[in-house]
Design a protein around this nucleic acid. Structure first.
Lengths: 165, 165
DNA sequence: AGCATTTGTTAGTTACGCCTAACAATGTTA
DNA sequence: TAACATTGTTAGGCGTAACTAACAAATGCT
């Protein structure tokens, strides 16, 4: 992998752990090693060692054989990761019309590497598209029409690509 | 990092090397270890060891102290990576209005992790937006207007988000 | 309470991908 | 062509992050 020019404070892996813990704390009540292991499809020893690192960074609280809590700092980070994830996932499903599962997978990977600006612009873009349908039929629907029957909408004033049937 | 459910044939790092070699072969005439090293901001020994791996996989031809060639297979892969890169880079610059450098960085990272479907949909989306301006002012310009003065275009029929000044 | 199952930990291994230091080949030029 | 600079390689090390095997604690059941 190419060396990041600005050292990331947390690796994608660590972010996945934080995210998983936060999500479990939402769904169930407590996060346990076994749960995290299942959610991330990783064996338990991997979780134990990740938790040790996150503890050292004061992002989680975890004592042996106990359950896992996020510190204030860890929770803040987790919330941000989830925010990124949700934005990307919405973009893929709502704008690009990709089915949930693939959208989730892509979001899961991209959330760790996209720049803050890239993310903000995607959020703004969703906002914009939803706020501004531009005609009776909104952009996602029009785009879907382009994907599906493969035709441009009639009220489309564009030149170029007209010949593509 | 989360274990990929389907084992990727090449790692992001290997893809970066293939991409760099193909790009050098375009720009200059021959790809040398030093050039690859510079382009990827990695020391030369890292390049040597990467080339060994790529040679084993029959993706590059490289004999000691010689320059580097792509095999037919390697070239095919490289071309696909570059295709992904270009699509993403266009999306970030032309649709999301992100400056070249950040767009390139994001493209560089995302190209390795996005799903084939995600990529195709982004390509289609660019196509669609360019083919279908929807009004005198095309979508990117309208979006930019939303970003810049922070206002929705006048001809926007949307509800919601109206109150955001 | 006692034993079994589940859950979690430690220890040790592997692979990747970068690094530095040292050495070797190549190329340049006096 | 001999000396020097550049380029490339090997060897060895480090951090991350996964894994298995073996052991230990906690839980659950009778």
């Amino acid at each position: 992998m190419v060396k990041p020019q600005v050292e990331r404070q947390n690796t994608p892996s660590m972010e996945d752990y934080l995210e998983a813990i936060a999500m479990l704390r939402g769904e169930d009540k407590v996060a346990r090693v076994s749960q995290i292991s299942q959610k991330l499809k990783v064996k338990m020893p991997s979780v134990t060692s990740a938790l040790r690192k996150l503890s050292e960074k004061e992002l989680v609280l975890h004592q042996k054989y106990g359950y896992v809590e996020l510190t204030t700092e860890g929770d803040k980070m987790a919330k941000d990761i989830i925010r990124r994830h949700k934005a990307l996932s919405r973009f893929f499903t709502e704008i690009l019309d990709i089915e949930r599962e693939t959208a989730e997978e892509d979001a899961c990977k991209i959330e760790h590497v996209i720049s803050p600006l890239g993310l903000e612009r995607i959020i703004k873009f969703i906002e914009f598209v939803e706020a501004c349908p531009q005609g009776e039929v909104n952009l996602p629907k029009r785009y879907k029409h382009y994907l599906e029957p493969g035709e441009l909408p009639e009220d489309c004033l564009g030149k170029g690509l007209r010949e593509r049937k």
